[in-house]
Design a protein around this nucleic acid. Structure first.
Lengths: 120, 120
DNA sequence: CTCATTACTTACCTTTAGGTAACTACTTGC
DNA sequence: GCAAGTAGTTACCTAAAGGTAAGTAATGAG
């Protein structure tokens, strides 16, 4: 199932199909905070992602109209990625999610990590 | 890589690992709105999901402490799923995401669907 | 003349996820 | 004694996703 036939009866399913995926929300979150990043910079910020996968994610986000690709045909080519207006609309949602994430992280550290000293 | 070693340096990665996944945010969204659903009811609300996958997602959400499982050993067993307190904290984020989704959906209908008549 | 650089693309192969179908438990109703 | 109903589990198999490595373009440095 590559595209799931987009039996998109409900908007939620549609948006989830666009922004969900192994690294996708993280990429959006990065671009949401830095407003413009080169391909290599994104790779550096996401340890573990391969060029193939990152390219795939960026292409899909571009196709969804959430990310803008700015290709500069310089000697070694330079490509800048940034959020489109629509992509930027996700900022507050991602922000909210991050706040919850940070809160949980703190709570978990309090409970589990009271006496933990950098475990490894 | 089953668990990706949880090299969770950043809270965002951690939370994404817990709530991202093919059907996961959708399940959370359902439980967020209906506050308690039986296994079969969830299956019915998500056309296309298999029992195996739904079980898997619910078990993982339970393990993450986001979903509560209430097993009633009645004659044919009855199991109620609901969000935990922590799970409920995602409500506003999911709400925000849904608002964006609905807005985009309307915008897209305006642009593309001006003369479209239910295109089946 | 060759290497390094950036942002990929392609081919190939492995791993993982997910689908399907059959099976379980326990009691009621026929 | 057998089917029905709920909420799964298990085994088996296929399809898709992802990793790795190599290739590409164009130019300046050494």
């Amino acid at each position: 199932m590559a595209a799931k036939e987009d039996h998109t009866q409900c908007p939620m399913e549609s948006i989830l199909g666009q922004i969900m995926g192994p690294w996708t929300p993280y990429i959006l979150w990065l671009l949401s905070n830095e407003n413009s990043l080169r391909f290599g910079e994104i790779t550096a910020r996401i340890p573990g992602i391969s060029a193939k996968v990152l390219t795939d994610r960026l292409r899909k986000l571009e196709a969804s109209g959430l990310v803008h690709r700015d290709y500069q045909p310089t000697v070694p080519p330079t490509v800048y990625y940034s959020l489109t207006e629509r992509g930027a609309e996700l900022h507050s949602v991602l922000q909210g999610l991050n706040e919850v994430a940070v809160r949980w992280d703190e709570e978990d550290r309090e409970k589990e990590g009271k006496s933990e000293i950098a475990a490894e």
